[in-house]
Design a protein around this nucleic acid. Structure first.
Lengths: 330, 330
DNA sequence: CTGAAAGCGCTTACAG
DNA sequence: CTGAAAGCGCTTACAG
């Protein structure tokens, strides 16, 4: 039922090669022929099939963005960056959600093996260096975002520095008992931010109190939810020793935490992490990650690598920046 | 460089047909042969190419979700629903962002012509009935979400009812001067919600005052941003006649609006629309749209339609539900 | 500027 | 249970 290149060629009285040339903007087609073919194709609702083109040309003209389901708010900004870079290229972008429960590495490897795209942008997948090493055998362009590696181009945050900066700020203000309100403790960004937190404490000769490393009980999305933030803050407010300040590892968790404070009628200075678009409006002091910009960079890396596979590996590490609003100031 | 089915067949000493059968879980392959092939394929990093499979089998085993860039928060819930339905099917899901500036219809038509997937889920695309009619010629399974049509399966909200319910509630509480704080006034959901607003006013014999239909100046994402909400509320607070209450057409705009009230030191009862996950935590009274559930339904429609193209058209219209929290209660 | 033909990497009746 | 072969809808040297 759907039209093929043969139908168009027949209707136009030319060979399929000519039809193909029209759609591949080869300039060696007579203008009148081109117009005729385009007109017929439009009438018949024809456009070359992506799969047949991909197979024949070995070029997909598409890149694929792999991202875990959990990163939504965060992800929107990155996506904007990617799309802005792609806007003038003739490249399709498809997004594939990776399910954290089903083996991230397996899913990534499967996609690559199936050769869905010319290149892959891996966002917040947090594969181990060993796993990344394994992906090299496929010799396919890969660009990492929110992960660091020597195997592939990457754009990442200095999460340790972020944790350090936030904690240091609170210490400088004279706070001593500082809670680390985190997501799933084993998650990679959490571990890195913890490092920075510890480093700052160390500089102030404050010993680490494991009881001040708190998360909630809801662990979907690695605990990066409002609900988890609310739960964690409820625990904090029930602590025996009163707490001076809070470093919370995500804005979305902070939304829950602030609600808990409100419900309990308490106020504790808080700095969180991300700078989502809502954060400005709800007055969150937070560590800003330039996600839009990083989306642009990682995409550019990928495009460059597709054009030039032998290029030397690029590796940007961004230093997070502290934005002070009212949640930390009283 | 990448391995093909021939490489595997050679290495295993069988024909390519047998290798193909193994990967298509045909049961007519001897168990020892199957294991041998699987082992070799794993060692050589082989999996059938998606494009070649798609071309040869005329089945893509994939569906594509088309969604405008703007709908992010909103979209997350829908996506969760879609993925939960797909989880046990052996079907890939890819997401394609539609750029509102580049002709929504053209982009959709192009994707369909190129035959990227077995079926398409069109989310919040707001194509006209005429445009939808045109898509029928491609005889491809299409399911609409957040749009209503007689041409395709659809799952939508009763936006008029939503606007009516919210406005009626405010009127019942004794408010008279009720502002409609909207996004781009021409956007379809806005127009529908306006209808409901007018209907409620009508019941109270309150004439419509065009000056109370207000939006901000920032029009990215059709004005569905915190910024636009902030701008609009700033205008409202400068109005000569004081205002009694506000019906705001999205939660994200309400975030901006609440900030503006805060900055100006005023409080005006407000009901918004969506019930995002943050809304519970910031105390927004809002119209709840069951997005997760609708994502499930629309996906099921699509899968059914793929299996059975002649099925009678399904058409769910959900009635929004008002959730009262503190933003409307004082 | 155009066409004939080989080939891309698979699937799938058909035959055995 | 397995193989030989046709075919899916394109692209792209090659030749003219």
């Amino acid at each position: 039922m759907p039209k093929t290149i043969y139908d168009i060629a027949n209707a136009a009285g030319v060979s399929i090669a000519t039809v193909s040339r029209v759609f591949n903007s080869s300039n060696s087609v007579k203008e009148t022929t081109r117009e005729k073919i385009l007109k017929i194709a439009d009438e018949m609702g024809y456009h070359p099939q992506a799969y047949a083109q991909g197979l024949a040309s070995k070029k997909k003209n598409s890149i694929m963005l792999l991202v875990p389901v959990m990163s939504n708010y965060f992800f929107t900004e990155i996506l904007r960056g990617t799309q802005d870079i792609l806007t003038d290229e003739n490249i399709e972008l498809t997004i594939l959600n990776i399910n954290q429960e089903k083996g991230v590495f397996r899913q990534v490897e499967q996609v690559i093996k199936r050769q869905w795209a010319d290149g892959y942008l891996l966002v917040s997948l947090h594969l181990s260096q060993q796993e990344l090493q394994k992906l090299k055998r496929y010799k396919v362009p890969i660009s990492l975002l929110d992960d660091h590696s020597t195997h592939f181009d990457s754009v990442s945050f200095n999460n340790e520095q972020g944790g350090y900066t936030a904690t240091k700020y609170l210490l400088n203000k004279g706070h001593k008992q500082i809670v680390l309100l985190s997501g799933r403790k084993e998650s990679i960004p959490n571990k890195e931010r913890l490092k920075g937190y510890l480093k700052a404490l160390g500089e102030y000769k404050i010993p680490f109190d494991e009881n001040l490393h708190i998360t909630g009980d809801s662990m979907d999305r690695d605990g990066f939810t409002e609900k988890n933030g609310y739960e964690a803050m409820s625990k904090i407010l029930k602590l025996e020793k009163p707490v001076d300040a809070i470093f919370c590892t995500s804005d979305i968790k902070a939304v829950g935490a602030l609600k808990a404070m409100d419900d309990f009628g308490k106020k504790i200075p808080l700095i969180s992490y991300d700078n989502l678009s809502i954060s400005e409006y709800i007055g969150l002091s937070t560590i800003f990650q330039p996600m839009y910009k990083m989306g642009c960079q990682a995409t550019r890396h990928l495009l460059n690598r597709i054009d030039n596979p032998e290029m030397i590996i690029c590796d940007h590490i961004h230093n997070p920046e502290l934005i002070i609003r009212k949640s930390s100031e009283f």
